[in-house]
Amino acid sequence: MKRTFLIILAALTLFSGCNAAPKRFSAVYTDVFDTVTEFTAYCESEEEFESLSEALHAELLRLHGIFDIYDLAEGINNAKSLNDGVKGDYPPELCELISFGVSMCELSGGQLNIALGSVLSLWSDCREKGVLPDADELLKRAEHCDIEKINLSGGEPSLEDPEMSLDFGALAKGYAAEKATEFLHGLGAERFALSLGGNISVSGEKPDGKWEIGVQSPDGGILTVLKISDLSVVTSGDYQRYYEVGGVRYHHIIDPKTLYPAKLWRSVTVVSKSSKEADALSTALFCLDLDSGKELLEKFSAEAVWVSYDGEVVRSKGFESYEK
């Protein structure tokens, strides 16, 4: 009998894992980037996590203030100041984001355009009112989306066309997640996962292995589970922000070519080392056909999975290696 007991004991030990690992903590912020931010980290103590979380929250609020196109920020020029035509010094983060936006526009053949602000603001006004934008008004506004009219001289960017405005909706969260990850590394954090409204950036591994990230299926539930470390995952989907007019669904990702919501895919998820590239690419790929999307993807070290309107799931060559 003693022997039986010992074998059971050994089996229990095998399945329990009895080393004293750092504990897992989570925090949620609802006041940055108009979305829900979740921060999960493994720390030795609650105090350690609390101080990390507080510092991270303050950093995210700072970045949010800089990229905000709706409200001015206190004490500094921000994206709204730039759109309003204010001259002067701008924070380096904004200049960096603009440069990144300009290079992504070039690489994507204009598919990702941060100068689309005037078109996007019309859509967003109409979404609030539950009506469709006037087609002529859309075309009129599209004349003020020339990214070449952004002047990036030193730390003093300006817009040559006073009627144009910048919108960082396709980049800001990914860029902020990247900055926040660097910020947390600077504070000594190693094992954490950050989600800015589904823009996910994970660092290191959990004590029991890689982070497990579910990719949402457009119809609800989980499409697939990724096991990753030190990577970012970003999804663009037609189900995220939308409204309906006359029974037709209009979502928030506007194709710069048509000025209307892109209708090629239900969702596109991109995995990349770079969170800002993953964010930008998911939006660009959402508006591109499969071949053009794959071509763009090849310029970066990134993988993607597409879900089409008839439910077909297409993976890029290396995507499978991340799946469980």
Binding site: S195, I200, V202, W211, I213, G214, Q216, I222, V233, Q240
Partner: peptide, 17 residues
């Protein structure tokens, strides 16, 4: 500022979507 989240043991860490 309200979030309603389903929790349980053994699920994924985060969801991208």
């Amino acid at each position: 500022g309200v979030t309603v989240k389903v929790a349980g043991s053994g699920g994924v860490d985060l969801i991208s979507g």
